[in-house]
Write a protein that binds this DNA or RNA. Structure first.
Lengths: 181, 181
DNA sequence: TCGCTCTGCGACAATATGCCGCATCCCTGT
DNA sequence: ACAGGGATGCGGCATATTGTCGCAGAGCGA
């Protein structure tokens, strides 16, 4: 942390959606963050090597390396970095992985800048209220598929075999967004 | 099985569903765990105060205090304890909290003993985890539907609403597999 | 009895799936 | 450099499953 109270906070934003990055960057800059943007893990690496950022917003599903690898790297470089993982394909399996690798919070799109900023300050809360609504079968299926996919290191063909499901069908299911519930 | 059965591994199982506990306890005992059962956080406390267990399986949604509090306590008492959170009301939010509070893994019901043991990570029996084939999505769906049906006292319409599924579809699914599993 | 919900089931349209093939890539051993 | 093997993404098409409607009967409390 810098001593100057009005110093901007360095923030790394990594998402392969250019439009999304533009919008979010502007919103974050208004909130006193000095934003650096990258569209892939590979592109982000040289930007963080010299001096790791204080904050980071990382998308998981990008071309090239998974955002999870970047989360791990950022956390190793500076454990004090507050990392928010933001993904349109949220699943419990990847959420668990992200947190274990050092992420501070895990949000699913759509999320606005305020939610993201709030997530930076989020602390573990053992009194979190529980959702009394059971998961829909659709959601359950999504979670299960993602867990097996995780176990198979992201290998779609292997996952399809493990689940006794046609690869084409798995592809189509993965292409769809997870539905709430 | 083939590994030398040295001393048993202490395991705390906390779930308010007595039947579920019975079944799971037996399954875990077969896998060389010394299982202690509690049906609430309050009931579990005196059991872990003298000597914390090496492993724990904790349900989140129970009468009384949230399982998250117990996760935190167990982790504080002994950071080496491997804690698996197992819940029928899985959500990303609680998954994130659970991991941050010290849980090793987060699973949603239905999950069998093999999956739970695998979730503890490494150790266990490598042979068991290797041939442990993940449940097919169909079987998962069937068990989930039946669990919710149970909770709704067999009311098909209510279950369909809870699962966000059309009543007609639920009827057809239920008619297809008269003998569940 | 009226009004409400649950239930089973037929029918038809909208989707989803299984299964084919094909064109890339990315390894790895030759 | 090359072939072989596997993984991936995707179009297309026949078939299976769902979503959605409607209807009639049963149970239940006011």
């Amino acid at each position: 942390m810098n001593t100057a109270p009005n110093e901007q906070l360095s923030l790394l934003l990594v998402d392969d959606d250019a439009t999304f990055c533009d919008v979010l960057r502007r919103a974050l800059e208004k909130r006193n963050f000095s934003v650096t943007v990258a569209h892939s893990v590979e592109q982000a690496l040289p930007l963080v090597q010299p001096n790791p950022p204080e904050y980071a917003v990382v998308d998981l599903k990008m071309g090239g390396a998974s955002g999870l690898a970047l989360v791990q790297l950022l956390h190793e470089m500076d454990p004090a970095t507050r990392i928010v993982v933001l993904t349109g394909y949220a699943s419990i399996a990847t959420a668990v992985e992200a947190i274990k690798l050092g992420a501070t919070q895990y949000l699913s799109k759509p999320a606005n800048a305020d939610e993201i900023v709030a997530a930076f300050g989020h602390l573990a809360d053992p009194d979190l209220s529980l959702n009394a609504q059971p998961a829909s079968v659709e959601r359950l299926e999504w979670e299960h598929i993602n867990r097996i996919l995780q176990e198979n290191g992201g290998n779609i063909s292997a996952t399809a075999r493990a689940l006794n499901m046609h690869r084409r069908t798995l592809q189509r299911k993965l292409a769809k967004r997870p539905s709430g519930g």
